[in-house]
Every structure is written in structure tokens, then in C-alpha cells.
Amino acid sequence: MASRVAAYVMLTLACLLTVIPLLYMVSLSLQTQGETLSGGAVLWPDSPQFQNYAQLFEQAPFGRFIVNSVVVAGAITLAHLAFDPLVGYVFAKFRFPFRNTLLVAILATLMIPFFVRMIPLYVMFSDLGWLDSYQALVLPFLMDGFGIFLMRQFIQPIPDDLIHAARVDGAGEFTIYWRIILPQTKPALAVLGLFTFVFQWNEFLWPLVATSDETMRTIPVGLTRFSEEHFQLWHLTAAGSVIAFVPTAVLLVLSQRYFVRGITLTGLK
């Protein structure tokens, strides 16, 4: 019993240590500039300055940053949902020459950290004149070995008989995939989509490298550059941070179970 109470106390403490800095970020976003710069550091503003949020959109093309982030993270997520299960299905259920070689070639890319591709991709897009474009932000992340591996593992246990029976009935190959396989992968697709979106929404290094035009920045890059250029506008930087954080928070609340279940799967990454 005593250990149970101790566990509650310690966990509550850990959660407070985790959450309080994030709440302080909300507090900063509602302070006046004077309060954020005062030596005494204000815990919570006397009168919350909601107009900080409006001011942020006047000081920087923050609306553009939001659109860019939605387009980029959204397009990448859709691509993963379209391709990862299809490719996973082929590796799980088809026999064809070089199957294992190709699978190993795709899974081996999991060992390649992004920073290795960063310089050559920059040069490639620069040669194409595609820096500061959606293509540059989206294309390098359209698929990855992890999503394909996850879907293959998930599709493998689906009985072959289902596929054979459909073939005997004369169903086309894509119809079999679309009507029989895909509907059974919904839980895995939800996890895949959720995590792809959140991680791409947060992606920092590549959008930093691939954009120099302010109007092509995603939220994390736009925010960081904004704070470099206006280091005394802490209240606005904090407001932007809260906006960057909101989608994650909403998804987390709406799909708690998928996060709890999926996070251990992402460990395979």
C-alpha cells in the first residue's frame, strides 16, 4: 500500500515536471513584452494578452507557415498510407525473382540516418532549381523502410486462402489488394498515419536546409528563424510555439490508445 502511494506521488511529480514547462510556454504567449523581458520572470500574466496571437500573424507570414506545414506533413502522410501497405503486401504475399534481395535493399535504408542524405539532396534539388519548393520538402520522405516493414509484418498473418479464393473468382490483383487486404490493415494504418504526420509536422533539419525563402518555411523553421531575427519578441515566439504544439496535443487526446500501442512499434525504427 505504501509503495502504491509512493508510486502515485513520484509519477505525479514526474508528470508535473514534464507538463509545467509546457504550461509556462502558454503563460509566456499571453504575457506583455515587458513581462517576458523583466528580470523577475512572471509565472502567469496579470492580464492575459490574447492579441499576441494576432500580432504574430502581422509580424511574420505565420499563416503561410501553417499552410506549408499542413501541405508538407499531409502530403507525406498520404504517400505513406498509399504506398507502404501496397509494398508491404507485395513482400508479404508475392513470390517473384529477387524478392529477398529487394526487401533487404529497402530495409537496409533504415540504417541510413537523414543527415547522410542531407548534402546530396540539397545539391540535387539545387541543380533542379527546386529549393524553396514543396517538391523539395516532400519528396525525400515519401516512403521509408519502417512503414513498409510494419505493414509487411501486419499483412503476413492474413490467410493466403482469402487471396486465392478471390483470384479463382476472377478478381483483379488491385481489387484484391483494395477490397480484401487493405480493409484488414486499418489499425496498422491508423498508427502509421498518426506517427508519420506527427514526426513530419515536427521535422526540423530538412526544411531548414531546403528553404531560404521565408514564405516556404514550415512552422518549426519559421519559428526558429523568427526568434533569431526578433530575439526580444519572446511573447510572440511563445505564441507560435503554442500553435505548433496544438495539433500534436489534439491528436494525442483524440487517439490515446493508438499512441500508447503504436509508440512501442516506432521503437523498431
Binding site: M25, I219, P220, W234, S241, L252, F259
Partner: peptide
């Protein structure tokens, strides 16, 4: 979920936030 939140937050948000918290003059 509460303990997981920072892991799902952009390093940009986390970096800027802690830069502010740790500031020797104005940090909390």
C-alpha cells in the same frame, strides 16, 4: 501520455522554450 508529450513535440518548440527558461537574466 503526459510523460510522452515532449517526445512528440518539435525540437524547435522544445529548444526555444528551454532557451527562454534557462536564460540567466529573464529565465524562470
Amino acid at each position: 501520455l503526459a510523460l510522452l508529450v515532449p517526445y512528440l513535440t518539435s525540437i524547435a518548440v522544445i529548444g526555444l522554450l528551454w532557451q527562454n527558461i534557462l536564460d540567466p537574466q529573464t529565465g524562470i
